[in-house]
C-alpha cells in the first residue's frame, strides 16, 4: 500500500522535475522514497512494540488506558513510598542502636535499663540478630502424586523443629527469614505454610542463633525431630543441620495491613 502510494509520488515527480536536485544532493524522487522509508521504518517499529504490548504483554488497547494505568501508577507510587519509609526505619534504628550502645558504655542506671531493653528486643524478635547458629533445610518429597498430603511439609513438622530449637536454647529462629516470635503462629493453608503474616512455600530454611553445637546435637538426637521427619515414610527432604559461624536473622516485620481482628489496635 505504502509502496503503491510512494510510486505515485515518484511518477509525479519524475514527470515534472526529474532533474531538479534537492539541497542534499538527492532528487526529489529519491528524497520522497527516503521519507517513505524512514516513516515505514519507524511505523513498523511502533507496530511491533505495540503488538508485543497488546498480545504478549496481555494488555489490550482499552485496558491499557485509564483504569489499569492509573492503578499501576498508584501502586508504583505506594511501593516507592514504602521503600522510602523502610529506608528511613533502617537509618533511625541504626541511630537508636548507636545511642543505646553509648548509653551502655557510659554505665549507671541507664546502662542497666538499656541492657534490659536489649534483652527484651531479642526475646520479642524486634531486632535483627547475627551470631553462631545452625541451619536446616526441609522440603517436600517428589514422591507420587497419589497421596500428596502425605508428602508435603506440614505445619506440625515445622513446629516440631522450631520447638526443639527453642527448647535447646536458641535465641532467635526464622523460617525463610520470617522471624518466629512469641505471637507467631505456624499453620498450613493449602499447600503453603503460613508463618505469622507471611505465606511460605518449600524449601523451608530454618535458621537458629544460639549455642550452635547444642542446637545441632538437639536436632540430631537419635529418634529426635529430624529422625521422625526422615523416617515417617514420607520421603521428605531433610538436610543435615549445618553449624554456621555466622547466621543472620532479620527482625520481625509486622504486616502492612492488619490481617485479623482489631485486637492490637
Amino acid at each position: 500500500m505504502i509502496c503503491l502510494a510512494a510510486k505515485q509520488g515518484y511518477i509525479h515527480r519524475f514527470d515534472h522535475d526529474r532533474l531538479q536536485k534537492d539541497g542534499y544532493g538527492l532528487s526529489t524522487r529519491n528524497m520522497s522514497a527516503l521519507a517513505w522509508g524512514i516513516v515505514a521504518l519507524v511505523f513498523g517499529g511502533m507496530v511491533a512494540v505495540q503488538y508485543h504490548n497488546a498480545v504478549l504483554g496481555g494488555v489490550a488497547f482499552w485496558s491499557s488506558s485509564p483504569d489499569v494505568a492509573s492503578v499501576e501508577t498508584r501502586l508504583r507510587a505506594v511501593e516507592m513510598y514504602n521503600a522510602n519509609l523502610r529506608q528511613q526505619i533502617a537509618s533511625y534504628s541504626k541511630k537508636v542502636t548507636l545511642l543505646q550502645a553509648t548509653a551502655i558504655a557510659r554505665g549507671g542506671m541507664t546502662a542497666v535499663l538499656e541492657r534490659k531493653i536489649h534483652a527484651m528486643n531479642v526475646l520479642n524478635g524486634t531486632m535483627p540478630l547475627s551470631g553462631p547458629g545452625v541451619e536446616v533445610i526441609i522440603s517436600d518429597s517428589k514422591m507420587s502424586k497419589l497421596d500428596r498430603a502425605a508428602f508435603l511439609t506440614h505445619d506440625w513438622d515445622l513446629r516440631s523443629v522450631i520447638n526443639e530449637l527453642f527448647v535447646a536454647g536458641a535465641d532467635a529462629v526464622a523460617i525463610n527469614n520470617a522471624r518466629i516470635t512469641a505471637q507467631t503462629g505456624v499453620f498450613c493453608i493449602g499447600p503453603v505454610v503460613r508463618v505469622g503474616s507471611v505465606r511460605l512455600g518449600p524449601p523451608f530454611v530454618v535458621k537458629a542463633i544460639g549455642p550452635a553445637n547444642v542446637l545441632a546435637a538437639a536436632l540430631k538426637i537419635p529418634g529426635g525431630v529430624l529422625d521422625v521427619l526422615k523416617s515417617s515414610n514420607r520421603e521428605l527432604f531433610v538436610s543435615q543441620p549445618k553449624v554456621l559461624k555466622r547466621v543472620l536473622i532479620p527482625s520481625y516485620s509486622p504486616p502492612l495491613v492488619a490481617t485479623q481482628g482489631g485486637i492490637n489496635q
Binding site: 516513516v39 512494540v49 508485543h52 504490548n53
Partner: peptide
C-alpha cells in the same frame, strides 16, 4: 529506491520484535 519503504517496514518490524522492548 522503490523498495525502500518496504524494506523500511520490514526492518522496523524486525527491530520492534527483536529488541523485546516492553
Amino acid at each position: 529506491y522503490l523498495l525502500l519503504p518496504v524494506f523500511g517496514l520490514l526492518i522496523g518490524l524486525f527491530i520492534g520484535f527483536d529488541v523485546n522492548f516492553k
